[in-house]
Design a protein around this nucleic acid. Structure first.
Lengths: 193, 193
DNA sequence: TTTAGAAACGAACGATCGTTCGTGTGCAAA
DNA sequence: TTTGCACACGAACGATCGTTCGTTTCTAAA
């Protein structure tokens, strides 16, 4: 296990700070204080700028999702199991790195060009591949005939509260939560009796 | 139809601006420009402060949800129909006032005390009442035996993308979207063949 | 036509922002 | 022991922020 570089520490603290206050309300002086530095200027020995930190966080998380869906596409063929694996991926990412996924979800819009366009392109690509799996499931009769765009966004949006839950309450076991989210999204709230 | 007061115009423009840039990144000078004023100082003839505008937006929307669930509680008794009505309420609010619901969802954390606590109490109250309906449905066998907290947050979170969709693409009919969201949340993605 | 009040203006305030730069310090290689 | 480099410091920069205040302009009632 290699030691964490100071840069990594700064980036992680930045993710937490951006998550707590939002990117614009987060100051470099507070970030310095959180990593034990007296001066904001000291940060610039480790990162290039405030926005460079945001970029690292956003693209690092984008990579996790891109890698995840690539693995799922090549190792699983049944659309139902693919969607289950995607749901699992989102829960996994959200609970493994609680703060940076918040930044990924909410603070990407403070990226400036050309990073903003690049980020949106990555997201769009991910969504298209997700939607393609839904489409395939509908065609094969595995899924209901629901508008794929609606299904895509409803599922993605539904998975966004996890990091919040994991951060605050976390009263029940993760495996139970995972199972119930799967059940709700795949089979719905209504009982079938 | 009474004319819109300048204060209302300012508040609505503030909602749009907060939605576009986030509360912290939104400046009073840009807000002034958006309502045709050359000076930010002119805004203070209509609103008390930047945060006062945020407060109005947040609590006005909280009121809509509180009023909505109160009506549903007293006019509908079947839990399944109550949840359907709640989903409908969220879609209705999100599409009727696209921008202010964004602020309600994402920017409330920039409220300062005591408004922050007051807002969180309102939200908590709403969530408890929503959860109570889920609980009732589980008890009567209308709903699956899913952890009510998980079901609550998954459904609430799932409904948050609507305003985004309504703002940007809006390629398909609202009634179709509404129907498909209902179907997905109540019966799930999997087909039952 | 006069007058009172509402609303817009423009300068200015103190505060805070991200970032730069020159300096000093301490550790590791020579 | 000397040298070089990584890193922390502290002052300072220009910019922008929300807000205040005194003044001017506009409008509608008298």
């Amino acid at each position: 296990m290699t030691a964490k570089t100071k840069k990594q520490i700064v980036i992680e603290a930045a993710a937490k700070l951006f998550s707590d206050k939002g990117y614009s309300a987060a100051s470099m002086r507070e970030l310095a204080g959180r990593v034990g530095l007296e001066q904001a200027s000291s940060l610039y020995n480790h990162i290039k700028s405030k926005e460079a930190a945001l970029q690292e966080i956003c693209f690092e998380n984008a990579q996790k999702f891109t890698d995840g869906i690539t693995t799922i596409e090549s190792n699983i063929s049944d659309p139902g199991e693919q969607i289950r694996a995607l749901i699992n991926l989102h829960i996994q990412v959200a609970t493994n790195d609680i703060t940076s996924v918040t930044v990924f979800n909410d603070e990407w819009r403070h990226l400036s060009e050309p990073q903003l366009s690049e980020f949106l392109a990555l997201r769009k690509d991910y969504e298209e591949r997700f939607k393609e799996i839904i489409n395939k499931g509908i065609k094969t009769g595995t899924f209901k005939n629901i508008n794929p765009t609606v299904a895509l966004h409803t599922i993605l949006s539904a998975l966004k509260w996890i990091h919040y839950w994991y951060k605050t309450g976390r009263d029940s076991d993760l495996e139970i939560v995972k199972k119930d989210i799967m059940l709700l999204l795949m089979s719905g709230l209504s009982s079938n009796d």
